[in-house]
Amino acid sequence: MLPYGRQTIEDDDIAAVAQALKADFLTTGPTVEAFEQAFARVVGARHAVACANGTAALHLAMLALEAGPGDRVVAPSITFLATANCARYVGADVAFADVDPDTGLMTADTLREALARADGPVKAVLPVHLRGDACELPALAAVARDAGALLVEDAPHALGTRASFDGVTETIGDGRHGAMATFSFHPVKTIATGEGGMVTTNDPRLAERLRTLRSHGMVRPEGCEPWWYEMPEPGFNYRLPDILCALGLSQLAKLDRFAARRRRLTAAYLDGLAPLAPLVVPARSPAWSDPVLHLMTVLIDFPAAGRTRLQVVEALKSRGVGSQVHYIPVHRQPYYRERYGALDLPGAEAWYARCLSLPLYPGMADEDVTAVVRALSEALGL
């Protein structure tokens, strides 16, 4: 069975974890800082702060910005629940933005429309680099700035992704346009630590707040006894242990190889899927985006195929191919529907009606792509 995503764990990864298990520190030790420094170098940011998972990264980002009751946070409706939930964790409200129906990405226009609906001051805008494709960051940053809001990039899908704006190539997470960017190291992501997250920033004040808030809000004032600590504000136990950081360091060293493999598999998919158009088309990558795709998402005209999505999913499964849907629009969730009422977000609805994610991970063989495309063609009766 080919799952839609899977970690790639090799002997040297296992050896790195075993070595960490034999070290003096299983948590809050030197491997954490080593992972943070290496990650910051890779994405080109000044600071990186490791934490328990990608959701914790988003929560810490909201805490670091001091978002709270009375504030609004704009999030796209096509994303995982955590992007919106992080605002609610701190008492802020969510204004859902629509997305481009062919890319799934928030745009400057959909952001403006969401800001116009936001009933109150907007503290932050959270563009999601869906599937690994980069949002149009300069345009989004300009709109957010005009609204008095800061950009926090939700980038769990986009480690290794580059983008070019006005002839300048950037790396997602380098902090050129936003206050912070958040990442996840869940097993299906580009690198894995089992669970884990990271926040990058170029602001030393934010970096210090993130580190304090991930460890119960404790600080150690200068000149105090060695056992003394104080808590100016409550934080959380969002630390990432040395054991997992050791795995992260080992995985991070393979990022270029993993990225190259994902790009090669993506190119094979694009070639293989071409004959299935217009019934099946890959989600569109914007011109500025040079992605390392986390998800191989296709958009399928199910009514034209005479098949429901469930029928296609089950037919793929019977042929040994796993698939997934990314995502159910978050504004549809009962909690948010009850809180904010029904919303008309046609781009998100059009995306959801057609999307299906196919297997994509470095351990796939070239012939696996051929098998997936053949299975999809058969599942659609082509």
Rank of each mutant, 00 (worst) to 15 (best):
residue 11 D to W: 05
residue 11 D to K: 12
residue 11 D to E: 11
residue 12 D to C: 06
residue 12 D to S: 13
residue 13 D to Y: 06
residue 13 D to Q: 06
residue 14 I to L: 14
residue 14 I to T: 14
residue 15 A to N: 09
residue 15 A to Y: 00
residue 16 A to L: 03
residue 16 A to V: 07
residue 17 V to E: 05
residue 17 V to I: 15
residue 17 V to A: 07
residue 18 A to S: 10
residue 19 Q to E: 15
residue 19 Q to T: 11
residue 20 A to E: 07
residue 20 A to R: 03
residue 21 L to Y: 10
residue 21 L to Q: 14
residue 21 L to C: 13
residue 21 L to A: 12
residue 22 K to Q: 12
residue 22 K to I: 03
residue 22 K to H: 08
residue 22 K to R: 13
residue 23 A to I: 07
residue 23 A to D: 15
residue 24 D to S: 11
residue 24 D to Y: 09
residue 24 D to W: 09
residue 25 F to S: 03
residue 25 F to W: 13
residue 26 L to C: 01
residue 27 T to N: 03
residue 27 T to P: 03
residue 27 T to R: 15
residue 27 T to Y: 15
residue 28 T to G: 01
residue 28 T to P: 02
residue 28 T to C: 08
residue 30 P to R: 12
residue 30 P to H: 10
residue 30 P to Q: 10
residue 30 P to T: 10
residue 30 P to W: 09
residue 30 P to I: 10
residue 31 T to H: 06
residue 31 T to M: 09
residue 31 T to F: 03
residue 32 V to A: 12
residue 32 V to M: 03
residue 32 V to Y: 01
residue 32 V to S: 03
residue 32 V to G: 14
residue 33 E to S: 03
residue 34 A to P: 04
residue 34 A to Q: 14
residue 34 A to K: 14
residue 34 A to S: 12
residue 34 A to L: 12
residue 35 F to D: 08
residue 35 F to H: 02
residue 35 F to L: 15
residue 36 E to R: 04
residue 36 E to C: 05
residue 37 Q to N: 10
residue 37 Q to W: 08
residue 37 Q to L: 13
residue 37 Q to E: 11
residue 38 A to K: 00
residue 38 A to I: 00
residue 38 A to P: 00
residue 39 F to I: 01
residue 40 A to W: 05
residue 40 A to T: 02
residue 40 A to S: 04
residue 40 A to C: 06
residue 41 R to C: 09
residue 41 R to G: 05
residue 41 R to Q: 15
residue 41 R to Y: 02
residue 41 R to W: 01
residue 42 V to S: 07
residue 42 V to E: 15
residue 43 V to L: 12
residue 43 V to W: 05
residue 44 G to T: 12
residue 44 G to Q: 07
residue 44 G to P: 08
residue 45 A to H: 01
residue 45 A to R: 04
residue 45 A to Q: 04
residue 45 A to K: 04
residue 46 R to I: 06
residue 46 R to T: 15
residue 46 R to A: 11
residue 46 R to L: 01
residue 47 H to A: 03
residue 47 H to Q: 08
residue 47 H to K: 11
residue 48 A to N: 00
residue 48 A to S: 05
residue 49 V to R: 02
residue 49 V to L: 09
residue 49 V to C: 05
residue 50 A to H: 14
residue 50 A to D: 05
residue 50 A to G: 04
residue 51 C to I: 10
residue 51 C to W: 07
residue 52 A to T: 06
residue 52 A to S: 08
residue 52 A to V: 03
